[in-house]
Computed example of a mutant assay.
Amino acid sequence: MPMTKIVDCSPADNALELLKQLANPNRLAIVGSLLEGPRSVAELELVLSIRQPTLSQQITSLRDAGLIEGRREGRHTIYFLCDERVTSVMRFLATLYPDLLPAQLRILPPFGNMNCTDLPEMIVDMRLSAQDVY
């Protein structure tokens, strides 16, 4: 069944569609990561530990719903939030659930502000430090 763009519905239907999109743990993680800034698919895959086929499927769902957009930068597609309602809802959820966004997402610099060759080592370091917290 095709996804209805969130802006094409009544206010109650808009809210329901937004919540349906956020009800999936992978989509919630993707949106949470994009809350901190634009990300490439490679960054999302490494940071969120979501396999590429699943990640692509969830990105397509979020894009079709009009919640995120992507732009090409060289060989990379960079995704970013394009609906202020998503930002508002995610920030609100983060106040209710402070651990909703893992610390490693908050410290990863936005796309283009780091050397991509350092990314795998950086992710390993972040995962190790996250394990120390638990």
Rank of each mutant, 00 (worst) to 15 (best):
E84R: 01
I59C: 05
M3R: 07
R71Y: 09
M90R: 00
G112V: 12
E45V: 14
Q104V: 08
Q104A: 06
I123Q: 03
I107P: 03
L35Y: 10
F111T: 09
L108F: 04
L22I: 12
L119F: 02
T4M: 10
E73C: 02
L101G: 03
T60C: 06
P38W: 10
C9S: 14
G112A: 07
D8I: 10
F92G: 01
T95M: 03
P98E: 02
I78K: 06
L81R: 04
G66R: 09
M1V: 01
M122D: 06
F111P: 01
E43W: 08
T54F: 10
Y79L: 07
S10T: 14
E36C: 15
D8S: 14
A94Y: 00
Y134G: 15
P53V: 10
P38E: 15
R91P: 00
D13A: 13
E121Q: 08
N26P: 12
P102K: 13
L44P: 01
N26L: 14
I50A: 13
D8K: 12
R91L: 08
G66P: 03
E43S: 05
A94W: 02
Y134Q: 15
P25R: 12
I123L: 00
A65E: 08
M114V: 02
S88Q: 11
C82L: 14
T4N: 10
Y134W: 13
E43T: 11
E17S: 08
A15S: 09
Q131I: 15
T60R: 09
L62H: 05
S40H: 04
I78F: 02
E36Y: 12
R63S: 14
M3V: 07
L44F: 02
L16Y: 06
L101H: 02
M114I: 04
T117H: 04
E43C: 02
T54L: 10
E73G: 05
V124I: 11
L105T: 00
P120D: 11
V124E: 13
D132M: 08
P2A: 05
R75S: 05
E69G: 11
P120Q: 06
F92A: 01
A15L: 11
N24Y: 09
P98F: 01
L44M: 14
D83R: 09
P109S: 03
P2Y: 05
L44H: 05
M114D: 09
D64E: 07
P2S: 09
A65G: 08
A94R: 05
T4D: 11
C82A: 11
P110C: 06
E45S: 03
A65F: 00
V31G: 07
P11T: 12
R39K: 14
A130G: 03
L18I: 11
L96I: 00
P109K: 13
P38A: 15
L96E: 00
A23Q: 01
T117K: 05
L35F: 10
P110Q: 06
